[in-house]
Design a protein around this nucleic acid. Sequence first.
DNA 1: ATTCGTCTGTCAGCTACCCGACAAAAGGAC
DNA 2: GTCCTTTTGTCGGGTAGCTGACAGACGAAT
Lengths: 227, 227
Amino acid sequence: MKFSNINLLEELARPELAPLLSAFHERRYARQAIVFSPQYDDDLAEQETQKPREDNFVFIVKSGLVRIYLSYGDREFTIALLKPGDLYVSHSNAFVQVLEDAVLLLLDTPTFNRCMMTIPEFTVSIVRVLGGMLKSSFSIIDGLALRDVTVRLARLLIDLAHENDDNSQERLIRLPLSGEMLAQTLGTSRQTISTLLTDFTRLGILQKEQRGLYRILDENRLRELLH
Amino acid sequence: MKFSNINLLEELARPELAPLLSAFHERRYARQAIVFSPQYDDDLAEQETQKPREDNFVFIVKSGLVRIYLSYGDREFTIALLKPGDLYVSHSNAFVQVLEDAVLLLLDTPTFNRCMMTIPEFTVSIVRVLGGMLKSSFSIIDGLALRDVTVRLARLLIDLAHENDDNSQERLIRLPLSGEMLAQTLGTSRQTISTLLTDFTRLGILQKEQRGLYRILDENRLRELLH
DNA sequence: ATTCGTCTGTCAGCTACCCGACAAAAGGAC
DNA sequence: GTCCTTTTGTCGGGTAGCTGACAGACGAAT
């Protein structure tokens, strides 16, 4: 769901990275805007013989919410949601969409490559971000290949509960997306998410406060679902 | 299946990277050896509060075949097979196992971090490798979340056919793993792989030459299965 | 307050694939 | 050649989850 804990806005606020920050171009996008749409080719084997893409890009979310997702026909799978401070490096055929009005700091590829050679601190940050993206991707693969939807949903709920640590006494979870969008994040259908949330409620693990807002009544039992 | 096209052995052969090459320690492993076994904790939410792992590591495969995989109970999912020249940076709870006697060039974390700050060429190579790993991971996620097993197998076969470009007239595919291991790479069961290979054979797409060796009779029809 | 569009819960039929099991085939060791 | 282990192909029953559909709930706009 989220790629990395590194806040690039804080990193770029450091004085030695000031020239780098000035190289980014600020751009505004309205909600639902598709920032990046890959030239998707179903024939994956041909990718090896294609020229390297010249329109790779890097951006940092300054404000808003951005979704990284894969798409095939009418099916979509959300890989990550990016919040302010998050950086994304495009290396694949993933779509980029703004879910809430956003401001992005964009960096063109030649500048990106030059900065990597001349500003080691930046490059190390990029490595850390890529490492976080990789770890998150492995976790997604683990969920899809080795677990079932119940575990994936339980994981999401626990993650969300911990993101709202200021509500730690209440254990309230505000689902950041509609059921349909959550389903796309967990690789399942909206109906299954609805069914499972109802199951968790009947089991006394959750209590629905209102649409999209749940209270965790028994976190230990939620954690038991992880096994 | 494979992470990146970058051959680090060739990269490290460049004169300016000689000090870096000398920092690697050479280590031998017998087939089946587990090189790295994570302290796997089922409770993923706790990972945010854990100390950073001190035993992250980097290695380059000098010879042999190495498998990167995830494991849960008796289920396993293979993320990648590394061949000579491939580099792996551990950032997650993946296992590392030697499938064929291997020689690895290992780099400890402090040296790794120091070299990243002092040798920009190395850092850029790391970024490119991580980018390749990420792209490959996205492709795996795409296959697991948005496609079915037929597509995943067809992709694998096409990839393998293109890796053996020296046999381009023959379109012979030597499966590098047993049916069971292939199933673990595609997130399915051995029986399903067997059934699908038989289906492809009955459809006139493949012809079985011997165990583990197939000829592609109709590559266009194999590619049609990708849609 | 009303209307409309989106979201949600539920249902029943369907399906892609799993799983345990067994027999046959294949390859390697002796 | 024999023996043993691993691999492979096949079968039939079972299941996690999908899918289309419908009605109700909810929130925003007017």
